[in-house]
Design a binder for these strands. Structure first.
Lengths: 224, 224
DNA sequence: ACCTGAACACCGTTCAAGT
DNA sequence: ACCTGAACACCGTTCAAGT
């Protein structure tokens, strides 16, 4: 009755590139890119590390696959919205996805051969600008400006030493106490009169900058 | 005459935290962060790897020091320029510095305890906005928007698989040939009608986005 | 076709020992 | 006070061997 290979509760399914990538994303989400080692990934998959090489060429290939998987999670711009609404929604989704996978902010789906999800996403974003009345050049400008902003914002957010409002307050209090006020008066002022005010949350800055860029793009589009 | 410790041509000076950091930046510039290992850094300094630990607590501390050194290279906003000119100049300088040290785009001077150059730089940038008539809140918005954009742009630029115009053309040609036109029509159009046009250089996008943000900030300042 | 065990050439970091 | 040698617990990746 029992097959020679037992199928215990959490036992292995057949390995595949997708299953490898999925597990790798899970590991990186939990412990950062440093926590992702081939040996630990093997454990996660109930397999020896060396088996992984049957499904990815090497670690770089694995990370490229992970980056493409992350791109696949971003909401595509909707065809039924006007360009501004569509780009705004997908930009908010993009930031959420990067917040869920902070390690992905520092990883680029290899410029040389991007994955299918990455290509589709970029194509749809550029298409949204083009159908919204942007010239090819203006669409290139828009694409560059918006995505640079999102990546940079996600990176800043990730590197903050706090997340919850309570942590912010505690941390800012300490930093302010240590900060030589005479040497860094503006930093001290910003911390005391802005960061330490109740309700402060760095994430709220995202929409301010995004809308500023989108309004600028609208003006650029109308001018051309 | 000869001292017991010979001072051969490329021989060691006394080690110091600054000398360690300087050599580490050199290594990372040449080969990326992966090329920076304690053992190789030791070689570069004519010293065993373990000696480095007399001057930095560990590799993380070393990288924090490197990030602060990079911040020290950025031109501070001038007091004699109006806020827009001052921020524009220092933003261009910031991007140049990140292009010189591509590894620095993915490294943050630990949010928890930033170095002196980082603090001074941030203080001067915030001060430039405040003296330019921005409220504390508006200065925080401006700071976040501009620096997110610069970091993100530098990251995109770094991850491009080409640098010189000739490489761009060659690479774009290949990518366009491989790209299923029917599946990614807008990406194909952008590549053919924009990237492959003579004179294309991705770096030129930087000022487009930067000026768009600065104009938006000016409007925000005037509105408040 | 896929998985494994052993091995290679590396890592960061510690610690006791030297000067 | 600073530097070193040996060692520890890891890495990514290869290769021949198993099924």
């Amino acid at each position: 009755m029992a097959s020679p290979r037992r199928t215990a509760p959490g036992t292995r399914l057949r390995l595949s590139r997708d299953r490898v990538i999925e597990a790798a994303v899970r590991l990186a989400d939990a412990g950062g890119l440093d926590a992702l080692t081939m040996r630990r990934l093997g454990e996660e998959l109930n397999v020896e590390a060396m088996s992984i090489y049957n499904h990815v060429a090497n670690k770089e290939d694995l990370i490229n696959g992970m980056a493409d998987a992350v791109f696949g999670e971003i909401e595509l711009p909707s065809h039924s919205d006007d360009w501004k609404t569509a780009i705004r929604k997908r930009s908010i989704s993009f930031r959420e996805v990067l917040a869920r996978h902070p390690w992905a902010t520092t990883v680029r789906d290899s410029g040389a051969n991007p994955g299918a999800a990455t290509l589709r996403h970029h194509d749809r974003v550029i298409g949204t600008f083009r159908n919204g009345g942007f010239s090819v050049a203006a669409a290139a400008h828009a694409f560059s400006a918006v995505d640079s902003y999102i990546y940079g914002f996600a990176m800043q957010e990730k590197s903050l030493p706090f997340t919850t409002p309570e942590e912010v307050a505690a941390m800012a209090e300490i930093m302010l106490a240590q900060l030589p006020r005479s040497e860094y008066p503006y930093l001290a002022e910003l911390t005391a009169d802005y960061v330490l005010k109740p309700g402060y949350f760095y994430g709220d800055e995202f929409l301010v900058g995004l809308d500023l860029i989108l309004d600028g793009l609208e003006a650029m589009r109308n001018a051309s």
